[in-house]
Computed example of a mutant assay.
Amino acid sequence: MKTFKALFTIFLLAISTISCSGDDGNNGIDGVDGAPGATGTANVIYSAWMTAPAAVAETIDGTSGLSTSINAPELSADILAKGTILVYMSFSSSVYQLPYTSTAGGFVNTITAISTVQKIKLFRFKHVGDGTTVSLPTSLSWRYILIPGGKAAATAKTTKLDYSKMSYEEVCARFNIQP
Score class of each variant (00 low, 15 high):
S164K: 14
K119D: 00
I10Q: 06
S76K: 06
G28W: 05
D23V: 15
T112E: 10
A52Q: 05
S19A: 12
A77V: 12
S67L: 09
W49L: 05
D30I: 15
I10W: 10
M89I: 08
T63M: 06
P137R: 06
T63D: 01
A81D: 08
G150S: 10
C172Y: 02
F11D: 14
V128N: 12
T158F: 15
V95W: 04
C20E: 14
I10A: 13
C172L: 01
F4M: 14
A104Q: 15
L86W: 04
L80H: 13
K160V: 11
D78T: 07
S139N: 09
I45S: 00
T116E: 04
T59V: 15
P137S: 07
S164Q: 11
L75Q: 03
Y168F: 08
I18D: 00
V32L: 10
V32M: 11
S69V: 01
P179E: 05
V95L: 04
A153T: 08
G37P: 15
T155S: 09
K126D: 04
L80V: 10
S93C: 10
A54F: 05
K160F: 14
Y168M: 07
S167Y: 11
G62R: 01
L140M: 07
F8P: 13
D33P: 14
T155N: 07
E74T: 06
L80A: 11
I60S: 03
G65R: 03
M1W: 12
S76Y: 11
S67T: 13
Y100I: 05
S47H: 01
G40I: 05
S21A: 08
S47P: 03
G150I: 06
T68N: 00
S167W: 10
A35V: 08
S67N: 14
A38S: 15
A52R: 02
Y163F: 13
S64W: 10
A35R: 07
P53H: 00
I85F: 05
G131M: 12
G34Q: 02
S16M: 11
T138A: 09
V117G: 10
S92F: 13
F175Q: 11
L122M: 05
T39F: 15
T84K: 15
